[in-house]
Nucleic acid binder design. Structure first.
Length: 885
RNA sequence: GGGCGGUUAGCUCAGUUGGUUAGAGCACCUGCUUUACACGCAGGGGGUCAUAGGUUCGAGUCCUAUACCGCCCACCA
């Protein structure tokens, strides 16, 4: 805390007290909500970061946005719960540990399941504490006493309960289907976990001879010649004239010799390739469908690593890539290959390891999802759940309405084991929440659990209720569920948000949250996605160490809008640091004038023009801040408070206040100054918690605020105060600042020596009596010796600069003014502009359609402009006449 | 093949129910070691709001096309 201004460094040192304040908040239990059933809580469940390593800037953005909401609602007096957690992250985490093992020259298979799990848990321990530490540095005010991990007993029970429930309901089933297989991860994946990318490939044209007449043949076109080993048919469109006569005939599969039928299927396009498609049901989703419809055999030709298996005969053991080369060569040598074309097509890649996906038929578990999707669609359509920004509603609905069954089994070790046991004797499947000891059908004790684990997103989908205690009816679940806001990145709308809505409604009968706020991705200064391989990642901790957490928080949210990506570079971070420094110095300045009698108590009868102005501006800023924070407009909110503190408090109020402070005026500006700063610190606190706490504590002490709470984070968030609405005084003040600007401008434009005081007479009607009190202030602000008069009762001196403002005329005599012509030219130009403006306004105000349709206030505004422009003309003419003499 | 977003000052971006004179930060130019702050102060230049139409008294804001950039979804071998 700042005790003595004179001892303080000129630059704010962000690092110094961040930890101290975080520990202070934690020690006082401010982050843990008190359940008060008479109040509606504000609840936000943190999207659990993956335990895959360091947090990146995306996490910093997430944490900042959420902390802003949480701190804001807490200050509104709502019991506020922000529940943190971490995700075991299935494949992603397993890959990380496997890589570490690989460095030791080991594989998970070599060390075995048990030892591998031990390694995983060790990793979890380190990673979780690291992530928590990083969050702490950011200033997150989450309730760590409720921190959850997806593999914890609570969430695990929720997973088993949900599985059993859906299994019993027939919504979870096991089946032989074609799924996306990653040969590196050796597991099935859901459709969402496959990224499709266009790749330059080739289209090979291959002849398939007829069985009854090998001199004739059908030519097929394929992007994957190696799958010929698994072909069990050739499909053509039933409407294709070229092939109508051969449907039902058999072909001899080149290199293999198998007889395969020609079948007719509508999905085959007549225009593409040759119109004849080699059909490999085991390795192509389309072909699988065709195969199902025509009872084609499924011949799997790849092992789990996508190498040719025993079904590939001579090619056994070759990788996909090698097999392709060899098969193409053999086809060519044997005269089957007729043509090769370049061809660009989409190829699926494993989201985690980028390996090309191999579609494979295998036995997997699926969720029959459509019945779950229906209420989830309705929840959004009805507005029970709103999505910000709104455009994602359409994206959500479109996906949900075309949803396909979800493959939930993974051939991994790391994750929730599928709660199904197989009887070794009667083969019966027992699905159970509790681990069974015997087969539920034949009571044999020879049972073994399914080897597979669940898709990591299965447990994520339960997160809002599983973290609050469900399936148990805990006090937390009863009070905090459904939650208020789900804040996350738009790229996991389907992965996570959609599934939470479906699972939440299915399990609890209630939506899991009422608002979804989607933020964009943070890119580097060039707009590129940050990635370790590109080396363009910015580590939040590095930024915090150099610039402070507040500067980082400021930088990640300034200028952002919901759902839009943003770029982050050094300049933005510096802007945040500079703002913190500015605020720090403003407070440092104020503190030098405080003493044991200092107070924020304002005597409204003593308020000066600038006092009323700044209070009125504070009041409007307060209203705006509340509005923007409610409306999720965080980028606008930070701009708003930044501009108020810097552009109004620092640039004007403090500068003007200096006059009274330095002259020991009996009517001190200090109570207003302290009030405005104290309130501003509250307004800013959700965004920049550390510096505001630091400075607020200093103000609290200096202003003897003994009755206020022990931390700014538990003060009330400021609200609109009718008593501080001084709109008229704001206008007067605007005229005064405009006068100062004109004087400064003249000084600068006419190269007035820095030390020379210029003189000026200002005619400003009724305002003169008020403004006269500001002669001193103006002289300080603009180095000008001014006198304010009501009316101009003398002619403009021959050599003077004249400025005509709406409510004031400024006359600056220039003894050495050498260019009267230029001055006249300037005034004449202004006059011409004013005349043009008059014409425009008069025309507008005569327009019947405008008068009849525009709202009154718009018309009044135009009329006022016309009046002003006429008045300005008159004054300008008068001045020009005087000068011309 | 559908869908979405972007196109505003040199750069990065705001601009939420349409209101006539479009803002900020950074960069740039000029002048300031003025006892809160050079992480600063004062002043200044810079935009026909991508293009073409339309609706409207009034369009950066609404509608329709077009162009370029980016993203998402989709089983065309």
């Amino acid at each position: 805390m700042i005790d003595n201004e004179s001892e303080l460094p000129k630059a704010y040192d962000a690092k110094q007290n961040e930890k101290k304040w975080y520990d202070y908040w934690l020690a006082n239990g401010y982050f843990t909500p008190k359940i008060d059933k008479s109040k509606k809580p504000f609840v936000l469940i943190q999207p659990p970061p993956n335990i895959t390593g360091d947090l990146h800037l995306g996490h910093a953005l997430t944490a900042t946005l959420e902390d802003i909401m949480v701190r804001y609602h807490r200050m509104l007096g709502e019991p506020t719960l922000w529940l943190p957690g971490t995700d075991h992250a299935g494949i992603a985490a397993q890959v990380v540990v496997e890589r570490a093992l690989a460095k030791e020259g080991k594989t998970r298979q070599e060390i075995g399941r048990e030892a591998f799990m031990k390694r995983m848990w060790e990793w979890v321990g380190n990673c979780r504490s690291h992530i928590a530490n990083q969050h702490t540095r950011l200033g997150v005010s989450y309730d760590n006493t409720r921190a959850a991990f997806t593999l914890d007993p609570g969430p695990s029970l929720a997973v088993r309960t949900t599985f059993k429930h859906l299994y019993d309901k027939g919504l979870i089933y096991k089946g032989e289907r074609i799924t996306n297989w990653c040969p590196r991860c050796t597991t099935a994946l859901s459709d969402l976990e496959v990224d499709h990318m266009d790749e330059k490939g080739k289209l090979w044209y291959i002849r398939y001879p007829f069985a009854d007449d090998p001199s004739k043949f059908i030519t097929v076109a394929t992007t994957r010649p190696e799958t010929i080993l698994g072909d069990t048919g050739v499909a053509v469109n039933p409407e294709d004239e070229r092939y109508k006569d051969v449907i039902g005939k058999e072909l001899i599969l080149p290199l293999v010799g198998r007889r395969i039928p020609i079948v007719a299927d509508d999905v085959v396009g007549i225009d593409f390739g040759t119109g004849a498609v080699k059909t490999t049901p085991a390795h192509d989703p389309n072909d699988f469908e065709i195969g199902q419809r025509h009872n084609l055999p499924i011949i799997n030709i790849f092992d789990e690593h996508a190498c040719i298996n025993e079904n590939g005969g001579a090619y056994k053991g070759l990788s996909r890539e090698d097999a392709r080369i060899k098969i193409v060569k053999d086809l060519e040598d044997q005269g089957y290959l007729t043509k090769i074309e370049d061809h660009v097509h989409a190829v699926g890649h494993c989201q985690r390891c980028r390996t090309t996906i191999e579609p494979q038929v295998s036995s997997q578990w699926f969720v029959k999802i459509q019945p779950l999707a229906e209420p989830a669609i309705e929840a959004v359509k009805s507005g029970e759940i709103t999505i910000v920004p709104e455009r994602f509603t359409k994206v959500y609905l479109n996906w949900m309405e075309n949803i396909r069954d979800w493959c939930i089994s993974r051939q991994l070790w790391w994750g929730h084991r599928i709660p199904v046991w197989y009887c070794d004797d009667c083969k019966h499947m027992t699905c159970s929440i509790e681990t069974p000891t015997e087969c539920e059908a034949c009571h044999s004790t020879h049972i073994h659990q399914d080897d597979d684990v669940l898709d990591t997103w299965f447990s994520s989908g339960l997160w809002p209720h599983s973290t609050l205690g469900w399936p148990n009816k805990t006090e937390d679940f009863e009070y905090f569920y459904p939650t208020s806001v789900m804040e996350t990145a738009y790229d996991i709308l389907f992965f996570w948000v959609a599934r939470m809505i479906m699972m939440g409604i299915e399990n609890t009968g209630k939506v899991p949250f009422h608002h979804v706020y989607l933020h964009g991705l943070i890119r580097d200064e060039k707009g590129e996605k940050m990635s370790k391989t590109k080396g363009n990642v910015i580590d939040p901790l590095v930024v915090i160490n150099e610039y402070g957490a507040d500067a980082l928080r400021f930088s990640v949210i300034s200028g952002i809008t919901p759902g839009n990506d943003s770029k982050l570079g050094k300049t933005k971070i510096e802007a945040g640091r500079n703002f913190a420094n500015k605020l720090y110095n403003a407070v440092r300045f104020v503190l030098r004038y405080t003493d044991e009698n200092s107070t924020t108590a304002i005597d409204s009868s003593k308020l000066t023009l600038e006092d009323k102005w700044i209070l009125s501006r504070l009041n409007k800023t307060t209203r705006e801040m509340n509005q923007m924070l409610q409306d999720f407009q965080f980028g606008e909110a930070v701009r708003c408070i930044h501009d108020f503190i810097w552009g109004e408090i620092c640039d004007w109020y403090i500068e003007i206040a200096k006059v009274r402070l330095n002259s020991n005026d009996a009517n001190s500006p200090l109570p207003v100054l302290l009030t405005v700063i104290e309130q501003s610190l509250r307004l800013l606190h959700p965004i920049m918690p550390f510096i505001t706490e630091e400075l607020w504590q200093s103000i609290k002490k200096a202003a003897n605020l003994t009755d206020t709470p022990s931390s700014v984070m538990i003060t009330e968030y400021p609200q609109w105060n009718e008593a501080w609405d001084y709109s008229e005084d704001e206008e007067k003040m605007d005229t005064l600042t405009e006068i100062v600007r004109v004087l400064r401008n003249v000084r600068s434009e006419y190269d007035v020596d820095i030390n020379k005081v210029i003189g000026a007479t200002i005619y400003c009607g009724d305002l003169a009596s008020t403004f006269t009190h500001y002669s001193k202030a103006v002289s300080v602000l603009a180095k000008a010796d001014v006198s304010f008069e009501e009316k101009r009762n003398e002619e403009t001196p021959g050599q003077a600069i004249v400025e005509v403002l709406p409510n004031a005329e400024i006359i600056i005599p220039m003894a050495k003014l050498f260019d009267l012509e230029a001055q006249l030219a300037k005034l004449n130009k202004e006059l011409t502009e004013a005349v043009n403006e008059q014409a425009r306004l008069e025309k507008h105000l005569k327009d019947e359609s405008f008068l009849s349709r525009a709202p009154k206030q718009v018309i009044d505004k135009e009329q006022a402009r016309l009046d002003a422009v006429l008045e300005k003309q008159e004054k300008l003419r008068d001045h020009i006449k005087s000068l011309e003499k």
